[in-house]
Design a protein around this nucleic acid. Sequence first.
RNA 1: CGGAGCGUGGCGCAGUCUGGUAGCGCAUCUGCUUUGGGAGCAGAGGGCCGCAGGUUCGAAUCCUGCCGCUCCGACCA
Length: 447
Amino acid sequence: MRLSRYYLPLLKETPSEAQIVSHQLMLRAGMVRQESAGIYAWLPLGFRVLKKIEQIVREEQDRAGAVEMLMPTIQSAELWRESGRYEAYGKEMLRIKDRADREMLFGPTNEEMITEIFRAGVRSYKDLPKMLYHIQWKFRDEVRPRFGVMRGREFLMKDTYSFDADQEGARKSYNKMFVAYLRTFARMGLTSIPMRADTGPIGGDLSHEFIVLADTGESAVFCDSRLLDLDVPGADTDFDGDLQPMIDRYTSYYAATEEKHDNAEFETKVAKDDRVAARGIEVGHIFYFGDKYSAPMKAVVTGADGKDRAVEMGSYGVGVSRLVGAIIEAYHDEAGCKWPVPVAPFHVGLINIKVGDAATDEASAKAYAALEGAGVDVLYDDTPARPGEKFARMDLIGLPFQLIIGPRGLESGKVEIKRRSDGHRDELSLDAAIEMLKRDVASALKV
RNA sequence: CGGAGCGUGGCGCAGUCUGGUAGCGCAUCUGCUUUGGGAGCAGAGGGCCGCAGGUUCGAAUCCUGCCGCUCCGACCA
């Protein structure tokens, strides 16, 4: 993409309403624009990050055996009366009426709808297990939206629903999502910690929140520092095999959010030097909730004994839009964002220091074509701006690699690669630079 | 939902107390000079001062109502 054609409205000054660094940087880097309290338009740069995160989430869901679909944002109140949640959900649910005065709502979650869809198509225990998911916008009329996309009212969420014939099966589904989540967040460069958690209004009795540590997180959390060093399950994980040992390894260490925290247990189980009391961002949440919805909504299957039983369900959410903010919280410095390659809006920022100079124009065009041709996403700064401004804005938007081509370097046949993560610079020939970028990007994207 | 505050060119703000022709910085446009870390000089454009009433000779400023937004707390992917 040529910057001259792109829409990238950068802000030099920090908007006063933004309190945390991720929100500030998302506004300054032209990623989002607030349209209403807790409601954001995703500008081109932010949208690219959102899409990359979404795709990683999708790939890991598919790998774990979940099947993608898409449910609507608008739902009928009828469904929610069946489960008994229409009244219970309270003012967080945005209620609307259509022209025939029918009561509708903008979905805050989809347990009811998926249960209705499931029961229409499944009759026998032989059809189980099933895991279905979608990635769709939700609306929760939060009392206090804040921190930009971290607590928006409208947000993009991946929600998966599992259906099993019995508790043992449900446990297996739960474990699959547990592992999938560890992998999902790790691929984005995040160290997530599964913590036993409150089940909240969704209900049930087995639940983990996946937390990313950050000073600006909204949850107070307590855990064993050794959790931070555990290996994440590999891409070769057999999701149909026994995942329980993997889960046990993670859950053997103390980790709890404030609501479930037991200080006596914490101090007994965790050595003093390993105790972590910190703040965290909840990026995922998994629940097993049994027949909470399937029983009232009559989602039943006929068992081997010929009797009908309500299916065992679980639901599993990832805050896709929230992750954009969470990743910035984890990867930034004074100058701006520092995107990990897998979620970066572009991999390489190509800076032509002196547009109009025949040599730099030619070298830049060559690099641009070669990298794009190799599947590397390039944002080519082909604008006539001054070098200082180009450097500053490339740092701000935080692409992992900067390829800097200027007349000074070209005199000796050299271009420069700057790595945004640590500021490391290499001077090398154009051809070598292109090869290096292709290689580095490819290796960073390897799953 | 309780408490606090803010709405003034695209962005950040001053002006409001004490009413009298709307200002600053950044950004934008033009010209010249610059050109490897957010340039300099000269000039220019751009505002129903959130909306609606009221008081007044006169309202960004005072009064009333409404709308929007932010922050702190209790709640949540």
